[in-house]
Amino acid sequence: MKKGLLSVLAVAAVAALVGTPAFGQAKKVKIATEGAYAPWNFTDPSGKLAGFEVDLANDLCKRMNAQCEIVAQDWDGIIPALNAGKYDAIMAGMSITDKRKEVINFSTPYAATPAQFVVLKSSPLTKALPLDTKVYSLKTMTPETQKAIDAVKAAFKGKIVGVQVSTTHANFLETYLKGIAEVRPYKTTEQHDLDLTAGRIDAALASQAYWKPMLDKPEGKDMTIVGPGFVGGLFGTGVGVGIRKADAQLLSEFDKAIVAAGKDGTIQNLSMKWFKFNVTPQE
């Protein structure tokens, strides 16, 4: 008797907590973004989410004929929370990597941009590691790529490099600069920018698509890109929509929508609007 009452209470409590459970395949898609990675996604002064991915998400949802809700979510918990069922998809400038593919699925990429280092214009690093406009792929270690990495290693000896936690950029530093430079993990890219300006760190590593618009803003007037750009390998094949492994249906819908948006130039238009250069993945 008592047990019966207890389980009824437990069920009632759960029902009360759950609110809107995602029963079956309703055409409602909840998409998470970070809201602090301009211009990919950010929060404007009126408190609304905006940016390349917010626009793109709305476009993709129209193509998929789905009702979408976009929510902001802290970056370092964004994958566990997807698997915990807090939302159905991630569009937060997230690169497709093998490591991440072990836990979630990715759509085809909707953007691809190289990783680059940024320093203050007054820094000696501008001379030690001059800007190299070439982009090197880590997929296969050619002598050229190796030379570029060695140059980076030599320049950053004993320096402090800031990077956002749980990113491919953080993995790059872990892999290639471990024991050479001190790596500081930040919760958001905006925070490492604050510390770069404040002089706490010597450089920061992030995606070119983050830096370009940033450097055009008044806050970025003292910063500049140095050294080579890197793609491929541990940086993955580009930026894609993260989806739970169980949601095969949603994955194929996103894939179709992204391919369509790439074909009719929507991605390019949005990317010119937000990044001022084309981030559409080139095959």
């Binding site: 918990g77 566990p80 936690v165 993990p185």
Partner: peptide, 22 residues
């Protein structure tokens, strides 16, 4: 850990970002 220090919680976060077994 929130201001980049790698003490116990900071390391825990790094490990979570590597294995996602939060």
């Amino acid at each position: 850990s929130i201001i980049t220090m790698l003490e116990i919680t900071g390391i825990a976060q790094r490990l979570i970002s590597q294995s996602y077994r939060a």
